[in-house]
Amino acid sequence: MFKKINYLLISFLAPLIGLISCAPKNEPVLKVAVATNFLTTADTLVEVFKRSTGIEVLLISGSSGQLATQVINGAPYDIFLSADDVYPSKLSSLGFADAQTQLTYALGQLVLYGAGDVEQNLKSGNFYKLALANPKVAPYGLAADRVINNLNIRSNVEGRTVYGQNVGQVYGFVKTGNADLAFVALSQVKDIKKPYWRIPQIFYSPIMQDAILLRPGLTNKAAHDFLNFLSSDEARKIIIKSGYEVPQNG
């Protein structure tokens, strides 16, 4: 009986110990918190960065709000790639980031996506549910809200608007057929054949996606290198190819 239990214990513990000892040996030197909408682009950037510098980068993704909350509560990230310019400013005003280092690495492009002639459907109210990201937490949601104002279609969409926490969830609402129109990011749909309407920039203020150096990164040379890399021509090409614009001078 006793023996049986011992065997059982060992057979449970052995793989567990194996798992623990397999944990990554060398801590990545650079920890970058990245807004989920930029994650796939950041993956590419990190790969290119590693090829030229040999520096290992760990990406932590989440919504900008979640990541900012984590930073305030002591998360040891070196750099923050936000989906807007508000959270980086907030972090620096609270003393968690260096205001001098804040830079716009990408300009988010808003598109209307869905079935049929999406522009016409939105303007004429010929749709069933319109999805957008929550304007209170998501920059693309705020931009979409402005577009609704500027197109003077507020009364049209009233009662038919649903909110996702971010553009990822909003895209899912259309993909699963629960909404037939949605404001999403160009970076999400650029490879899709379905027609979308790229909202002219005059209808919303630019979605500035800002990067900032966080306190733990101040003394980390790799962090400074990565920030410089973000505004290099090579990085800007990748960012544009992923469905963003970049600021003119930079």
């Binding site: 919504s63 979640q66 909350t69 305030i72 608007t161």
Partner: peptide
């Protein structure tokens, strides 16, 4: 509720969702 609710005040925006939103906006 976060996944199927759509965060609509008065219809699907329950306490937990409202709290999540407030935490997220700091």
């Amino acid at each position: 509720i976060l996944m199927v609710g759509g965060n609509i005040p008065g219809r699907t925006k329950v306490m937990s969702i409202a709290i999540y939103e407030h935490v997220e906006t700091l």
